[in-house]
Amino acid sequence: MKIARLYIQLLLPLCLLFGCSPTISTFDQNAYTQVTSLKVDALDLMSKATDDYTAHESEVKVVQLNIDKAIEYDKHRPHNEITTKMWTIINDPDGHLFGGFLVKWKKDGKCGAAYVADKKKQIGSAFDQIAELESKKIKPSEVTQ
Rank of each mutant, 00 (worst) to 15 (best):
V35L: 10
M1V: 12
I24V: 15
I138E: 06
T50G: 07
L133M: 01
A42Q: 08
D92N: 11
D44F: 11
I90D: 04
L10M: 15
N30C: 09
T84I: 00
N91K: 05
L12P: 00
E132I: 01
L16M: 05
I138K: 03
T88G: 12
L43M: 15
A117C: 02
T36V: 11
T83P: 03
Q129L: 09
N30Q: 12
P13H: 14
S47F: 13
D41L: 10
G99M: 06
S37D: 12
D74C: 14
N30D: 10
N30Y: 14
S125D: 04
I3D: 15
D44P: 04
Y115A: 13
C20W: 08
C111E: 13
K136H: 06
T33Q: 14
M1W: 13
T50F: 06
K104D: 09
K107H: 13
N66H: 14
N91Q: 11
D118G: 07
N66T: 06
A31V: 08
G109H: 05
L12A: 11
F27Q: 00
A70N: 05
C111Y: 04
E132P: 00
M86V: 01
I130A: 01
N80A: 02
P13W: 14
I90V: 07
A131G: 10
H79S: 14
C20D: 07
Y73T: 03
K75L: 03
K39R: 13
Q9I: 12
P93G: 04
G95W: 02
K106V: 05
I130L: 05
Y7K: 15
P78S: 13
P78H: 05
R77V: 10
D41T: 10
L17F: 14
C20P: 06
K139V: 10
A70T: 01
L17T: 12
S125R: 11
L133V: 07
H96F: 08
K39G: 03
Y32Q: 07
L14P: 03
W87G: 04
P140N: 01
L97R: 08
E57K: 13
F127A: 11
F98C: 09
Q122T: 09
E57P: 03
I67F: 10
A4T: 08
D94A: 15
K106Y: 01
H56Q: 13
V116Q: 06
G95A: 07
